[in-house]
Write a protein that binds this DNA or RNA. Structure first.
Lengths: 140, 140
DNA sequence: ATAAACCCTGGAGTCTACTCCAAGGTCAAC
DNA sequence: GTTGACCTTGGAGTAGACTCCAGGGTTTAT
């Protein structure tokens, strides 16, 4: 059994964040002392680890809430359901990657065209591009 | 001269967003009518276009604030300064790309290991991986 | 007993980029 | 004149994931 500060140390998640997770139904203490202190069991540690791993692969807390409810009642859910969930997240990530790649290319192009020297910014090709939109390949 | 609604239509940026930009010192009306209506000139249109392009290459409004102040007093700034700014943004984007690629790989690995069929989630390798952290190559 | 560490709650704040609401004044077309 | 579109302001809300504050109770070690 752990008090909240002990659990925070054990998991690297702050007291406040633990309370936040509880408020959002991600974790729950096993019970309370007479003084109202939260008492957590090892199950909470495992739950937090699950949350940390899921966050690590890009799931939002809202996503994780769904995964946790699936995990809680595995017999009521299928592999198909979980995989669909994960595939949607993957698609999301791929979309973000595409957007960031576009941005990267545009920034690279801007940088290549700029001398980067001590000359006055009056002649700066980056500023000019932003002013005029004259960067055909970047869809500005 | 445009009123705010006209400028909104012209640029595709909402009235509220224009006021928000004004509040954040990104744009300013040329003046006000006696009734207090904002009146904008073509310079505001150009400024908003600049903002839109800069946003399009990943700059935050805070970044854009800096770029705009450079643009305003080009003679006080160098190409070097602008390029440094853009290079920092590029590094930022590259970092995000690296992180998203890591996440993508992890999600792909999770998905590959899962049959995705109608079987009970009791045996779901995705859930198991999140529970146990048993995904060596993904640094969960 | 004392002091410090720890805990509780409710509420508010941070960050970023908007978006909405309420109340009331102004402008343009009929 | 009337009506509807338009504008103003101040303030609050959204999304998501925290983080901080104030006031007060509890536990632990000295």
């Amino acid at each position: 059994m752990y008090r909240i500060g002990e659990l925070a140390k054990l998991t690297g998640v702050s007291n406040d964040t633990l309370r936040y997770y509880e408020k959002n139904k991600l974790i729950a203490p096993a019970g309370r002392t007479d003084a109202g202190y939260r008492m957590y069991e090892d199950e909470a540690v495992r739950q937090i680890r699950f949350i940390q791993r899921a966050k690590g692969v890009g799931f939002t807390l809202s996503d994780i809430n769904e995964l946790l409810s699936i995990q809680l009642e595995k017999t009521e859910h299928s592999c198909h359901e979980v995989k669909t969930f994960t595939e949607a997240k993957l698609a999301d990530v791929q979309q973000k990657l595409a957007e960031l790649n576009r941005i990267k290319l545009a920034l690279e192009k801007l940088n290549e065209a700029c001398c980067g020297g001590p000359e006055s910014a009056e002649h700066c090709s980056i500023l000019q591009a932003l002013e005029t939109g004259d960067l055909a390949d970047t869809r500005l």
